[in-house]
């Protein structure tokens, strides 16, 4: 119970802050509450299949297979798989991190996991459709074309900036988390 309170401490403080806001400025307070509720519903509607797929991936896909598909020696194919996995996703970026954790745990190359994160953040297929409708295909296509090398660059640069020790600790931490 105490541990539970501690884990949710920050959330409880924020919830209290929202209550205070309700008293000081009811209009903004209610609006914030409404938006939180709306976003919570949105989260609950997209998140369950993501985590179920994560669980199935964790149980059924062996480390050896994952290493072959997305590991150190997976080359361009591995990067392409990572990019495709991220783009095929739905849901907010924060849902990508637990999935990334499983990919790391199973032995995916660090830069491939970052490509996955990059694709999830900005080239998700449903988002591209939305973007085309709202901004036109020229805007979407330009952004997409520049994002392809951009995502790869960010992934490789981030991996390069990390020392081997730092990467190892991320890998061992991911095994502990899942």
């Amino acid at each position: 119970m105490k541990k539970l309170l501690e884990r949710y401490r920050f959330f409880l403080i924020l919830a209290a802050a929202n209550l205070v806001l309700l008293v000081i400025s009811p209009a903004i307070g209610w609006k914030a509450l409404g938006l939180t509720g709306q976003n919570a519903l949105e989260m609950l509607s997209v998140i369950p299949p993501i985590f179920i797929l994560l669980g199935l991936l964790d149980v059924w896909v062996d480390r050896e297979i994952m290493i072959r598909l997305m590991g150190e020696k997976s080359g361009l194919t591995g990067a392409a798989i990572a990019f495709f996995l991220g783009s095929a996703a739905a849901g907010p970026l924060y849902a990508a991190f637990p999935v990334a954790g499983v990919l790391l745990k199973k032995g995916s190359k660090f830069s491939n996991v970052l490509i996955f994160i990059g694709a999830w953040s900005t080239t998700k297929i449903p988002m591209l459709l939305f973007e085309t409708t709202a901004m036109g295909w020229k805007f979407m296509l330009t952004r997409f074309m520049i994002n392809l090398p951009g995502i790869a660059f960010i992934a490789f640069a981030t991996e390069k900036m990390l020392k081997d020790k730092e990467k190892e600790s991320i890998y061992s931490h991911s095994a502990a988390l899942n």
């Binding site: 903004i28 938006l35 939180t36 976003n39």
Partner: peptide, 10 residues
């Protein structure tokens, strides 16, 4: 969720 709610309300 709460941070986003408050932020977008403001």
């Amino acid at each position: 969720l709460i941070i986003i709610g408050i932020m977008l309300a403001i």
